[in-house]
Computed example of a mutant assay.
Amino acid sequence: MTPHESTTTATHAGSEAGNGADDVLLVADADGVRTLTLNRPEAYNSLTVELKERLLTALRDAAADDDVRAVLLTGAGKAFCAGQDLKEHVGMLRSGDEAPLRTVAEHYNPIVTTIVDMPKPVIAAVNGAAAGAGAALAYASDLRIAGTSASFAMAFAGVGLGPDSGASWTLQRLVGYGRAVELMMLGRKLDSAEALRSGLVGEVVPDDELAARAHAVAATLAAGPTRAYAKIKSTVAAASGSTLAEALAAENVAQTELGGTSDHREAVEAFVEKRRPKFTGK
């Protein structure tokens, strides 16, 4: 099932009926963390229309649910996500179905936008291969923790396509413009050690420790000042394409808003009283 069933876990009520072993997306809650597990291990969690639509709905549900304070994205089996399911894709192309030509606008763009705009942290636990759109899902996340068997590849050029799923925007912010173009044109696979050296991931752990470590990080964030995290995400994203003056103005607006939150007041009081703050996300 999910990576953390040893913890006290409540299955998300909206997914309970469909959260069986044959469900393409598993959803579980524990410690304020909603774990979304891509569950097509026999196909390396490649993305069919069904899985893309389920993932988009689940991400939107998580964004809107105040009880969810962090989101953890991972894959079942030996891969994180191999990207687009090319068997389904080529079948549609052969039949003259134009759905594959719409999937970027209908699925990948809103999925990545929802991850990036999520008002709470999103952590990708990358187990095994992450390729194409699958790698882009990890790039769009706020934190990436990889198992030692993890690998990353921009496979788009190999099938005669350019990047999608936000990879043109996210990857260069992680590794720089020149490296991003190189990885996209050559399609070279990075193993977990090189991904760590290049800044693509923040941490690499043994495969058998990945689920527990990723959940621990997500749970720590879930217990933190989530409104502040949301502002960190939005101000940093905006600053990447703004002038210094615009960034300073955005920081001022964010700090003014956050200064009036219960979490800020609680943190200040806790500091003075020499105790740990208890954040509520308010």
Rank of each mutant, 00 (worst) to 15 (best):
D142T: 07
V175P: 03
G14M: 07
V201N: 04
P119F: 02
D23T: 15
G91H: 06
G202W: 03
A237I: 10
L25N: 05
V112G: 07
R265C: 12
P163M: 11
N19C: 10
D207G: 07
D117W: 03
M92A: 14
A43G: 09
T2A: 10
L221Q: 02
V268D: 08
A223T: 04
L36T: 04
T2R: 08
L26P: 05
L51K: 11
T256R: 05
R276P: 04
D191T: 03
N252Q: 15
G202Y: 05
S151I: 01
L59G: 02
L47D: 07
L38M: 15
A254M: 03
D31E: 11
A58T: 07
K231A: 14
A62C: 08
M184K: 09
T261M: 06
L86F: 09
R275E: 07
E246P: 09
A28E: 13
V49I: 14
A237F: 10
E50C: 06
A105P: 06
L137T: 00
G20T: 14
F80I: 07
T35C: 01
Y177I: 14
A125T: 06
M1H: 13
D97E: 09
L26I: 14
G132Y: 02
E194M: 08
V126K: 05
R275Y: 04
K78Y: 12
T35S: 07
D29T: 08
G14A: 15
M118H: 07
G241S: 10
P41L: 01
A219M: 06
S141H: 01
P121S: 02
H12D: 14
N252W: 11
R276C: 04
A245V: 14
Y229N: 04
L56K: 05
A228K: 05
E5C: 03
K233C: 08
T243F: 11
A222F: 00
D208Q: 15
V104M: 10
L38P: 09
H89F: 06
K282M: 12
A150P: 04
G20M: 10
W169V: 15
A62T: 04
V159K: 08
S15C: 13
A21T: 14
G259Y: 01
A105Q: 11
D85E: 09
V49M: 09
G20E: 13
R188Q: 14
P163Q: 13
L171E: 06
F80R: 05
L137A: 03
S46D: 13
T74G: 01
V71H: 01
K78F: 14
A76N: 09
A157Y: 08
R197M: 09
E273S: 12
V71I: 12
P41H: 03
A270W: 02
E209T: 13
L73D: 00
D61V: 05
Y177Q: 15
A153P: 01
V205E: 05
H4M: 05
A79E: 08
A212Y: 02
T7A: 12
V33C: 03
T280N: 11
L56S: 06
G14W: 08
A76M: 08
K52E: 15
L93I: 13
T280D: 12
G187Y: 06
V175L: 02
N127S: 15
L72Y: 01
K278E: 14
S95N: 11
E182M: 03
D85S: 07
T113Q: 15
Y108K: 01
G134K: 02
T37F: 08
A150E: 00
A135R: 02
R69E: 00
G91F: 01
P119H: 00
M184I: 15
V71L: 07
Y229Q: 03
A239C: 03
T7L: 12
A216M: 13
